[in-house]
Structure formats: C-alpha cells, structure tokens
Design a protein around this nucleic acid. Structure first.
Lengths: 236, 236
DNA sequence: AAGTGGTCTAGACCACTAA
DNA sequence: TAGTGGTCTAGACCACTTG
C-alpha cells in the first residue's frame, strides 16, 4: 500500500472516529507532515485524494475542512466517492434470466470494440435491493478477456470475481443515462406498470489499460433511484 | 494562469487539433517535460487534471492515451468533465415566474445553514433548451452572500454573474437526484402530462470557502434528460 | 504580518508493461 | 531488459486569508 493512500485512510478514520462534521477543521499541513513523517507533497497527495472522494475541501490561506453530506438513503452515483459503508447497508441479490455464450449484437460489438463474430458472455438478470426490485440488467462481456462465467459467479458480484478471481484491474467507465417510460416487458420484470418512469443506463467498462470488457444496459426501478453526487463543478 | 493548467490546455488543444481518438497514444513524459520545459511533477499534475476531466488515461509502463466518448447529444453530468464545447451547442433561455426577497422555508434555511429569519432571494423560473422546456427551477440564494439580483441577471446565467459580477469563487456542490412522476403543476410548466417521468435534483452550492450560497430544487423534462458520466470507478 | 495551503523543481528510486 | 509512468523527498517561493 502506498504512503499517500495509507495516510488518506488514516485521515478518513480520524474523521469517522471523531465524528467530525461538515466545516470542522483538520490539523494544518505542517502538523500532518510531522505526524506522519512524510514530505509535504505526500500529504498534499493524500488530501487531493480525499478531496476527489468528496471528504474534505482545502481553502488556501485558511485550512483543510471536512466535507460530509447529511442525507441518508442516497447511493453515491460515483462509487469512488463517499464512505464505502454507504453500500454495506444494502443487501443485493440477483435472479438470473439468461446466461450463455453468443455473438454480440451490432451495438455490443461496437461498444466493446470487437468483431461481430467474436464470443461474448451474455447475462440477463434482475437485481434486488433489500428484497425489492432494483433493476433489469443485460450485459455483454468480451470472452477474450472474461474467459469464464457461471451461474454462481453471476449471482454474486461479477466485478469482485473479475478483480479477485481473474486478477484483472478495472479502470474507467463511460455511462450514458436517460429517463423514459417503462415498456411492458420491463414493467413486468420490475413489478411496476407500463408507462411508469425508468432510469436507463448504458455503461462501457474498461480495464486500466483501456480495453472495454463489459457493455451493460440497465433499467432501474425509479422507486429505488435515489442518488447523490458530490462534484467540484455544478450540474448543468 | 498556472503552468500545469496552461500545459493541460495545450495538450487538450493538441488532442482536438489532431482529432485524436480513444486509445491514441500521447508523447511520453520525457518528451512532454522537455517540450514544455518543466519538471516531471508539473507534467504529471497536468495529466492528472486531464485524467480527472476524463480526457486521458495513463497506463504505467505503457503510456498516456486519449479517452474520448463517441456519442453526441449527451450532456456531461459533471461540468468539470469533457469539452466545454459540448454545452456551447445549446441555446438556453429562461422565463421568470417569480423573483423576490423573502425568508427561507425551513428546508432552505437548513440547507443554506442560515437563520430562519435571514433574507434570501427566491427565484422560480422555467428554462428552455433550443426552445423546448428543459426544467422548472426554484432557487434560494443567501442574500448575505448574493447581495443583489434582478430580472435581467436572472434571465441569463446566474452563475456567470456570481463569478464575474460579484467576484465570488464557486466551489463544490452536493446534488441529490431521484426519479418520480410529474404532478399537475410541474406537468403544466413543462408542457407534459401528469404522471410522466421526471428527474428531480436538489443541489446545494458552496463557495470555495465552504459557505453554501444557493439551494435549488429542479424538475427536468425527461425528454431532455440525456446525460453522460465518465467515472474512474463504476456506477452501482 | 503571520499563518496556511499551492506550485514547482531536480533527482532518486520504484513498479509495471511489452517485446 | 529497456521503456515508461508513479511515488517520494527537501526545499524554495508564491498566493490567499485572517486578525
């Protein structure tokens, strides 16, 4: 583990353990430098990391302050932000509708950047959060990268398997969202009515080396769709 | 302008002018260092900035590569990401319903962190994108910070005025999103039907020093709600 | 004016990738 | 094993905030 990551975790712990609130001041850089016995750049890098995660904000000439949002029940839209604990409060299960190897649709081959006759794992599943329908998900995994999947893996977290089982490093994601009305089939899967709102998300997931390995199309139950975003700019 | 920002802009230009595509390789660090005549840390900082903006990804041991999404017509959900040009393609206008000074609702005073009897500017407006309804927006501005607003300012970009007219520095934002059905009033404002989908966003906007200055409640027309997010983790 | 965070450098050394 | 990006240091100097 790198120094600046360890220090970031330490500071995160410090904030949690002392139940610091939005606006509370952290020790000054000088103090942190001597306390952790590292150079200024390293502390700065730790703090930049925490700032990126939305946990602190730094004010030049003034200090380093805690940033915490107050509302419960909202899921961070960017998983690299906020406390991981947020997600541990939820119990997610899956019901697998389909799982097989096939050739991709034109759309999928385009987004995965593979030949139309290449092999992909196709997974269709309904996901539940605390027993309620969360979403219907259709995914295409590039079989050249994700060499093996089975029902057991697909019932659990596929991404945990990709990281730990296959030893691959997940990098960045491009997601496209829009809001629309449910069609018959989707309403049926989610236990809602045709014409009800839906959040539809297409995601292209890449390894750290830039290779796309997963193209997913997900329709969310609007009743479960409470998200929050901490940004350093502003929406729209 | 800081060196690392200038260099980031130069590299951005370079990508645009050469029409580089996803996966194209940039010059190696060594080259960039000598080309811009700066130290390694400075180049690294520029590249980190571009990575945060979703324009490049760096692979240790391999190189620095361009990251670009392909789809048009999607608005970046995080304004600090992507090309600014994306937003210039849209023409946004406003129709002001209400504008006055009043005391905040309990909700607004809580989110703005001010006394219930403090003054706020209340603004309610409908916003149009290329002539179609985009959203209905209700905003509360802390008058102690945003000392003056008028119809003219409110018809244009309020944030441009805050930055340029008032000389304030906008910092971070906490946004809470959910999806629901339009009620009668909202449907009326947006020219849609009751029960149609809506994207509802509450935003708390802070200055760089952490002071909240704006609490906004915005209901978006679902037909205009096409967003994309570039993240370095993954959604849900 | 004193305190505090931010930028930038030059260079040593480390970790990963690809041929 | 050569090439390439990432971490870390020590210290100089700069920019902003606060009393």
């Amino acid at each position: 583990m790198l120094k600046y990551q360890e220090i970031a975790i330490e500071i995160e712990k410090y904030i949690e353990e002392n139940a610091l609130q939005q606006g509370d001041k952290l020790p000054v850089l000088e103090t942190l430098m001597t306390q952790f016995a590292v150079s200024k750049s390293t502390i700065t890098k730790s703090l930049d990391l925490l700032e990126k995660k939305g946990m602190v904000f730094q004010v030049r000439g003034s200090g380093i302050f805690v940033r915490r949002h107050k509302r419960k029940g909202y899921i961070s839209l960017l998983s690299n932000q906020g406390f991981k604990k947020d997600l541990e409060d939820y119990h997610i299960t899956s019901n697998i509708i389909e799982l097989d190897v096939r050739t991709p649709t034109e759309e999928a081959s385009h987004n995965l950047n593979i030949e139309p006759n290449a092999d992909v794992y196709y997974v269709k599943r309904i996901r539940y959060i605390n027993g309620q329908t969360l979403c219907v998900e259709e995914s295409y995994y590039n079989k050249a990268i994700i060499s093996y999947l089975n029902k057991e893996i697909v019932s659990e977290s596929i991404f945990d398997y990709i990281r730990e089982g296959l030893g691959l490093k997940v990098g960045f994601t491009d997601s496209y969202l829009h809001i629309d009305k449910l069609n018959d089939e989707e309403a049926n899967y989610l236990g809602l009515n045709k014409g009800d709102p839906k959040l539809y998300v297409e995601g292209i997931f890449h390894l750290t080396n830039g290779q796309p390995f997963d193209f997913s199309k997900v329709t969310y139950n609007y009743q479960q769709s409470q998200f929050f975003i901490q940004s350093n700019g502003y929406l729209l």
